[in-house]
Design a protein around this nucleic acid. Sequence first.
DNA 1: TGCCAGGCCGGGT
DNA 2: ACCCGGCATGGC
Length: 227
Amino acid sequence: MKSNARKAENPATALMDYYETLFRAFGPQGWWPGRTRLEVVVGAILTQNTAWTNVEKAIRGLKRAGLLNPEGLKKVRVERLAGIIRPAGYFNVKAARLKNFLRFLFKDYGGSLTKLFSRGDGDGDDLRKKILEVNGIGPETADSILLYAARRAEFVIDAYTKRVFSRHGFVEDGVEYGDIKRLFMENLPRDAALFNEYHALIVRVGKVYCRPKKPLCRDCPLKVFLK
DNA sequence: TGCCAGGCCGGGT
DNA sequence: ACCCGGCATGGC
């Protein structure tokens, strides 16, 4: 059985063991559930602290209104946009955040995600910094956009990741985003497909087996790693 | 009924 | 550098 000593000595091996165990238990998760890259970006903003089922309703509304395209989202009045995305919660805040992103996209990239995601002269970190300048896009939303829309190898950290891996002694409670992200980035092969599946699997296991304040380890596939 | 969901911002200490 | 309140709907 995997001991904590082993994972302390070799976090790379331990993290891959976790991944293999999750993949065997749950299989491929098929993330991100969006048809287009813009849909992924919109979903990443709408799902901030919000259940995905609510986001789906909002996205269906946007499609129904014919607004799930750069021009549509750019032109629609923010009040109407808020009404359409209402099921996603925080609808006034999120309507403004979508508008912020669209302004950014048109201001510097002609409304084209292809241009935004195309590699320029600088290193890949420049794009992350630029996206983070958009008001309403923080580290997790930025990394979700980079991984699931731009298909770049940025590991996404969320509340599930912190909960599962603090429960297993990899990080402290209240660990900073950058610190836990570094743990994954420095101990896994830099592979966007791996990061994609791994994050989705963490969310999957966290939803059922690692709830706040009452971890249900009984049937969790990761219980074999606990001492 | 209350808790939680694939966060982030702005203001205060 | 932290800590906190605000933002809001829908499912179990």
